[in-house]
Amino acid sequence: MLRHRAFSAAAPARRAGRATHVAASAAPLMLERASFKSDPTYKFAPLINGCWQLAGGHGREVYTDIQAKLEAHAAAGFTSFDTADIYGPSEEILGQFIRAHTAAGGAPLQVFSKYVPNIFQQRPTPAAVEEAVRRSMAKLQVSQLDLVQLHWWEYSIPGMTDVALALADCQAKGLIRFVGTTNMDTAALAKIVDAGVDVAVNQVQFSLLDRRPLNGMLQYCGERGIKLFTYGSVGGGLLSDKYDEQPRSGLFGKPQYTPVDLNTSSLKMYWNVVKQFGGQELWRELLGVLRRVADKHGVSMANVSLRWVMQQGDGATVHPIVGLRGTSHIADNARTLSFSLDAADMAALGAVLGRASGPRGDAYSFERGG
């Protein structure tokens, strides 16, 4: 279980027994920092700001005052950002932010990127890998990338391990500080590790709705000191207060809820996970338990969803990535670090999870057609 230092976020405001969002504090939070196994001096925030929404598909408002939004998160203590070379203009936007933040004397930032080659068109050579790394360095305006996470679309296409080794060569040249992977299943990750690549992290989907990392991945990483960065841990909002509502009585007394507006690419993706989990009825039941646990601790349902993920394994391996759209959730994110779920909470959630039908398999399995 994680141990936390004191932090300065105010206790959640309460109205009618429900947690509400409050404005972010100007004072930085006293977050207990995490580190990778190979360099304990390098520290990053326990919750990571996800910048995939800058890739598009989430509305133009995401880009409005984006530099101020990024600075607000960093000023609050959330100094770690996750991006990718395929996330539209995200690297350029973060590069502008890094330059301004550093010039103003801000706290050190950690920017984690990804290398996602189009292996369907051409197999990457070591030179192409280094070129891509240098391209990300230029966009981010840094002399060394903090972390590059390799994604490989299709295992049947050869070259995955060779490209991981090419990234390790870039690390040896000082172009990259840490090498990681993303969406690798346990067998693929093991191949890369066995080839001699010092993998610092694997980024996978992991939530109450999608527990595939429990099918071997979490144990493998925990035993080797490999971190898990997790996306989708609040299901694009599907595991938050936003969808907490009392049903209306419908035809033949069947409960009716407001239809879910799948208005972003993330929601469409996570709704597919809901269907594999057991459908809308079981999801709604899970939301009910989340509500009760959240009220017990005086936090939000999203806080409970994130805490559940963070407490899996040894409590120090999993670090969720939380999407950065605005600043209204900064204080709420901080409350995730203010409490722990107890055995009764875990049992209540487990009673619902025990009836889930999926998703099955290892990380990123059905997405690859498995």
Rank of each mutant, 00 (worst) to 15 (best):
A356H: 07
F252C: 09
I98A: 14
G279Y: 06
G236I: 04
A19V: 04
M184S: 09
V204I: 13
G237D: 07
E131R: 13
K242D: 00
L239M: 08
T79Q: 07
F78C: 10
Y220T: 02
I86G: 09
R291I: 00
S249W: 00
G235A: 15
L209K: 06
G216N: 04
R284I: 00
D169S: 14
L353R: 04
P28V: 12
A164C: 02
Q203R: 06
T161N: 02
M30H: 11
V22G: 15
R3A: 12
S90N: 10
G323R: 05
L239S: 09
A351D: 14
F178K: 09
G361H: 03
N263S: 15
L150P: 00
E91P: 06
A188F: 01
L290T: 11
L306D: 04
A356Y: 05
A166Y: 02
Y257T: 01
V116C: 13
S240G: 10
Q96R: 15
V197Y: 05
L29M: 14
Y42C: 10
T230V: 05
N303I: 01
G159Q: 04
E245F: 05
K242S: 08
W152D: 03
S207A: 07
R368Y: 03
H73Y: 14
D85N: 15
T181R: 02
G57N: 07
S8H: 13
E92P: 00
V129S: 03
A55C: 05
A45N: 03
R307Y: 02
K43N: 04
L175R: 06
L238A: 12
K173M: 12
A132I: 01
K114E: 03
A172N: 07
V299C: 08
N303W: 08
S338M: 13
T230D: 03
M1V: 12
L2K: 13
R3L: 11
A195F: 01
G59V: 08
G235F: 07
T186Y: 00
S25R: 14
G326P: 01
A187D: 13
A363P: 07
I86Q: 10
R224A: 05
T125Q: 04
F36R: 07
L165R: 11
P124L: 02
L140W: 00
R355D: 02
H329A: 12
S338K: 11
G225M: 07
S365R: 03
R325I: 11
G235T: 09
A356W: 06
T182I: 01
D314P: 04
E91D: 10
S35A: 15
N183L: 06
N49Y: 00
A334H: 06
P117Q: 07
A19K: 11
S8I: 15
D244K: 14
E130L: 08
Q171M: 07
F229L: 15
Y231L: 04
V322P: 00
G88V: 08
L209F: 09
D261Y: 08
R135Y: 02
G56T: 05
D39H: 11
F7M: 15
S300D: 06
L324Y: 03
Q141F: 00
E71H: 10
S357G: 11
E91S: 09
A347Q: 13
